[in-house]
């Protein structure tokens, strides 16, 4: 957990980017890059493309997957191991639940 936090801070210090699965509940970010080339096409089809805003909506009881509000209009559920392929930059942080 400690290491994760440090990683996250290192990343955010570098260029303010971090993987989507680290986006806290209720916070909104903008997609900067899709890392895995293989997944990029499919994620793009679901609407995950660079430049799109994405908000962490809510998470399933087991903690995975998470539903993201894409572009303020559609809800798409992604597993965490998918979401980590998406780099985002935060634009509105929200503390606590949505």
């Amino acid at each position: 957990m400690v290491i994760e936090m440090r990683d996250l801070m290192f990343l955010s210090e570098k260029n303010g980017e971090f993987p989507l699965d680290k986006l806290s509940r209720g916070s909104t970010a903008v997609i900067t890059e899709i890392k895995a080339a293989a997944a990029a096409a499919r994620l793009a089809e679901m609407g995950f493309v660079p430049g799109e805003t994405v908000q962490n909506g809510f998470t399933s009881p087991a903690g995975d997957p998470t539903a993201y509000l894409l572009g303020g209009c559609s809800l798409v559920a992604l597993r965490n191991n998918e979401a980590k392929n998406i780099s985002v930059r935060i634009i509105a942080e929200q503390k606590g639940a949505l």
């Binding site: 009881p61 509000l69 809800l75």
Partner: peptide, 17 residues
């Protein structure tokens, strides 16, 4: 937004299942 209160309850850790 489409994330409404119903979702928070239906998918909550305690009440969801």
């Amino acid at each position: 937004s489409p994330c409404c209160a119903a979702d928070r309850v239906l998918t909550s850790r305690i009440f969801g299942i």
